[in-house]
Design a protein around this nucleic acid. Structure first.
Lengths: 213, 213
DNA sequence: ATGTTAGTCTCACATGATGAGACACGGCGG
DNA sequence: CCGCCGTGTCTCATCATGTGAGACTAACAT
């Protein structure tokens, strides 16, 4: 049943659906889809919107918040990424590794009209993008000033620079990223933002270190 | 099974747990708790942290984000609440009604050392607090300049002012709130912040109206 | 060595998930 | 008006699978 409940949640993740849409999206029989949605509704994981459609329940907001909050780096990194966004004028993100994916835990957007947008909670591959490479452990401590850059790897026209955040024992915790359109970042974003990103990662590390004191 | 899976998620919402802790928190037999956590782990709703404990899975971050995003008022209200926080110097929140509760969808904190903190996703009663009263429909359009205040109702020492956000058809969508310690807000917070809160609610409404155009 | 605790797996049995189909309702077309 | 179709909700016989006691493994303490 849990498997099917998750299928329902994933269908609703794309947007609210009436029962017939849910039936189509999940490939479940109407009665099964209805019953699962109703069962999820009892628990607040699904709700009925004003049009009577099924939608993801607001209980998930709190659960998602607590999931992110279990990683102390999330809140510690937020003000640092805000400053980095303001300093660079580009969008900034914090990623952590989740199995063979990376998940975005903090995402702050550039004020420019043209900007990169990564939703909080987005799950992205590790094999593309600078943050993916960082989180795979591909950032040798000394090489290239401690940052990794990518241009058009995960998405055409998007460049990024990332640096690792490590804990006091040296374990890789997260990646701090700046990303933006190639038009502004240039094809060598590392030259432009690398030092700032590394500095931000160090600030996160420092804040984490003091949070443990 | 779904009921029990939710019990597991709720147990982990309080923080990561080893299996024995999960067994205690859920009152489920060890094997059942283990199997449920493992099943949830397959779906990313639970993860194993660095210490091998079960924790809420990062998949929930994205689900929570999408749940909130299904309500357009959430993103529309964010910049307005940022400005309101900066203008008042107090914490600001956006609440929506969820059944017989209210859920906080946006929560921005005052820069003061002493501030109110409401977690995003927090589910609170409707029968206490200014936002609760607003969302119960207890804010007559003309009365008291369109705002509702409360002092120490939900939490001792905390005062708040809230105003309703309505859609173009006049239906109640959300409540905008300013809250802070009585020491700063005074026992008549409405006198101090009411106009700003109502103005913010109107700005949200205007932004919603233009988002539909 | 023995006992305890933590995590994981097995399996007989009971429970409840399942889905085809029934039912109710509303809207539309002939 | 009636019939049809689509939507949402409920029923119930069937059987798939969830359940938990207990077994097994590993690590740690005495």
């Amino acid at each position: 049943m849990l498997d099917k409940a998750v299928v329902v949640l994933e269908a609703l993740e794309r947007g609210p659906l009436a029962l017939s849409g849910l039936t189509t999206a999940t490939r479940l029989p109407r009665a099964t889809a209805h019953r699962l949605a109703a069962a999820l509704e009892v628990h607040g994981l699904v709700r009925r919107d004003a049009d009577g459609r099924f939608a993801l329940g607001l209980r998930l907001v709190g659960l998602g918040r607590e999931a992110a909050a279990d990683l102390p780096v999330t809140e510690v990194a937020r003000p640092v990424l805000e400053a980095l966004r303001d300093e660079t004028g580009e969008s900034t993100q914090l990623y952590v590794r989740d199995g063979d994916r990376r998940v975005c835990l903090v995402s702050l957007e550039s004020p420019h009209g043209l900007r990169t947008i990564v939703p909080v909670g987005a799950s992205l591959p590790l094999d593309a993008g600078s943050a993916g490479r960082v989180l795979r452990g591909g950032a040798p401590a000394g090489a290239r000033g401690g940052w990794v850059e990518s241009v058009g790897e995960r998405e055409a026209g998007v460049a990024s620079v990332s640096a690792p955040v490590r804990d006091v024992a040296g374990s890789l915790l997260a990646a701090v990223s700046v990303s933006g359109p190639v038009e502004r970042t240039s094809r060598s974003p590392g030259r432009r933002y690398g030092a700032a990103v590394v500095e931000a990662a160090a600030a996160v590390e420092a804040a984490l270190g003091s949070a443990h004191a």
